[in-house]
Amino acid sequence: MPAFEVVMPMVDHRICVRHLYANFRDIGGYRGLALKEQLWSAASSYTEYEFNDHMEELKKMNEAAYEYLSQIDPSTWSRAWFSDYPKCDLLVNNICECFNSYILKAREKPMLTMLEMIRKKLMRRYQVKREGIKKLTGKLTPRIAAKLEEIGLQAIDCIAQYAGDSMFEVTCPDNRQYVVDLGRRRCGCRQWEITGIPCSHAVAAILYDCGDPEDYVDECFTIEVYKKAYAPVIYPMPSEEQWIKTSHDKLEPPRGRIAPGRPKKLRRRAPDESRDPRNPYRMRKYGARMRCGKCNGVGHNKRACPTNRSEASNSKKSDTPIVSFSYI
C-alpha cells in the first residue's frame, strides 16, 4: 500500500469485503449471521451517516467486533468513504477472480510460456471486442443503458421540486429527501458521484428539467471511450527461432527448488465454500447430524448401519446346510 501511494497516488486502494469478513470471522472470531449482515450493511452504505448508524448497531451487538473494524481504514472497504474519482462502487475483487480464471491454464506453465499464452488470449480478445463494438449503436454501452433504464423506472415514484441554481429537492416514497445538484452532478445519496451513473433522485430531477439522463452519465461509460480502451493492437510475434540474435550471453533461468508433493492448482477455499465444481453454490451442512435411511438412527448412514451385521450373521446361519445321516 505505501508503494501504491508513491508510484500511483491517484489509485483508490480497496480491500475485498468478502476476504475482510473471512478475517473478521476466522481471525477475530466474530461469528454469526447478525454480525455478518451488519458488516455488509456498513460496507454497502453510500453516506457517512448511514455508515455510522450501522457501526453503532454493530457496537451494541459486539463491542469487540466494533473495535476490530475501527482499526481498519474505512476508505478501503466502505462506499461511504470511497473516492469519487474511479467511478466504481465494487466491494469485492470479482474482476481479479474473473481474469484469474481466464488465465487458469496459463498459470501453471513456465514464465515465458505463460506470458505467451496470455498475450495470445488478449490479442484475440481485443480483436473480438473491436468487432463487437462496431455493431453498437447509441451513446452508452448496452449494460449501462439497461441499468439507466431500470433506474428510470425507480425515478417514477420520486417527486422533484426546483429550488434554483440547478438544484432540486427530491422526495422519495419513504419520505426521505435528497438534494440534487445537476450543475455539479451530485446527489445527497452519493451514488451518482461514486458510480458515475445518475441515481433515481437525479433522474427525477433531470426529467423535471426536461433533460436526457444519458447526457449526465460519466463519459467512461460511453461507446467512444469503450472503443479507445480496445483501440491498441497487440501485435503478433514470430516464433523464437526467428528472433534477432544478439552478442550477449544467453540468460539462464534461476535455480528452482522443486517442492515435495504434487503442486496445487486450485486456491484455498474458505470453510463455507462448496467443493463441488458442478454446483459451486452448494453450501456444506455444518452442525447437521447424520441420520440412517434404513433404521432411522442418528450418527451413521445405511452403509454403517448396525442392522447390516445382524442381517449378515442371520444369512450365514440360514445358508449353513443341514446334513442328516441315516445308519443302516
Rank of each mutant, 00 (worst) to 15 (best):
P2I: 04
A3P: 04
A3K: 11
V7P: 01
M8N: 10
P9W: 06
D12K: 09
A22H: 08
G28S: 02
Y30E: 00
R31K: 13
L35T: 00
W40L: 03
S41K: 08
Y46Q: 06
E48M: 03
M55S: 00
M55F: 01
E56G: 02
E67L: 04
Q71R: 12
Q71P: 00
S78P: 01
F82E: 03
D89E: 07
N94P: 02
M111Q: 03
L112N: 13
T113R: 11
K120T: 09
K121S: 10
M123R: 12
I133L: 14
K134V: 08
K135L: 13
K139V: 13
K139Y: 11
L140T: 05
P142D: 06
A146P: 01
L148C: 05
L148I: 03
Q154A: 15
I156A: 10
I156W: 05
A160M: 04
Q161I: 09
Y162P: 03
C172R: 15
L182R: 05
R186T: 15
Q191G: 09
A202H: 03
A202M: 04
I206N: 02
Y208L: 15
C210S: 12
P213T: 04
E214Y: 12
E214S: 12
D215H: 10
I223S: 06
V225T: 15
V233M: 07
S239N: 08
W243Q: 13
S247D: 15
S247I: 12
E252D: 11
G261N: 04
G261E: 04
G261L: 01
K265V: 10
R269Q: 08
A270N: 11
P271I: 07
E273P: 05
D276N: 14
M283G: 11
M283Y: 06
G287I: 04
M290I: 13
C292Q: 07
N296Y: 07
G297P: 05
N301Y: 05
R309V: 12
R309W: 06
S310C: 07
N314G: 10
S315P: 05
S318M: 14
S318G: 08
I322Y: 06
S326G: 08
